[in-house]
Design a protein around this nucleic acid. Sequence first.
DNA 1: GATCAATATATCTATATCGCGATACAGTAA
DNA 2: TTACTGTATCGCGATATAGATATATTGATC
Lengths: 117, 117
Amino acid sequence: MQLQKQSGEEMMSDGQVAEVAHLFGILAEPSRLFLLRALMAGPLTVGELVSATGMKQGNVSKHLGVLRDARFVAREKEGNFARYRVSDPKVRRLCELMCARIEEDAHGRLRELGGEV
Amino acid sequence: MQLQKQSGEEMMSDGQVAEVAHLFGILAEPSRLFLLRALMAGPLTVGELVSATGMKQGNVSKHLGVLRDARFVAREKEGNFARYRVSDPKVRRLCELMCARIEEDAHGRLRELGGEV
DNA sequence: GATCAATATATCTATATCGCGATACAGTAA
DNA sequence: TTACTGTATCGCGATATAGATATATTGATC
């Protein structure tokens, strides 16, 4: 009788854990989430993202590079411009799950306060 | 005609973005993912998690504290022991999504290599 | 060619956090 | 009380990365 992995239902291999952590890390930055949120409404150029977010151009470009390396967004060059789009639908799913979690916490805290009175 | 949020379908409020980023950050650590993976098979005490992961007891305790603050796990004290369990089913879902993403990348890279020959 | 605009990159400082080691804090038993 | 065990926490050095600024690169136009 062993402690872990009683069946073959191990969901993450040891090697995958590091990659999964890395991918979560990509989404663990407000700046990148702001960029993704803007892009979820449709493709935008770097300049448009700068206007939409108020971030500095250099930082926008850098974060877009990170998101692109992780294949969360894709780039399409149009002349002198670069138009980015969300390339993985899972991004929306992941954010939705986290938002749901926040909503739950909010409700839990309210019930907690109310129940104590 | 405005750039963002054409309808009321804004998925994350500005305030939520920071919280979402924070939650992703919790999962962006291999050590914590190892702990969560172990706990997905069933509740375990701190000592059992130390054995299961090979991590130092202090680190296990600290990371469990982080996971608990984020409400991803819950603690149940049993005498001198502390038994932890995954308290949010979304944790599994989130990891599955990231794993799926890694699988896709692997396949994409293989096709890419093969197509170039 | 020169020049301008859009994007990418390089360098820097500051901050955050990991793992480690040591230690403090229960809870139990003698 | 003292001693022991399981957990939690503190302090430190090292590493990683965000944002700001400056600069380089690329494409279009003259």
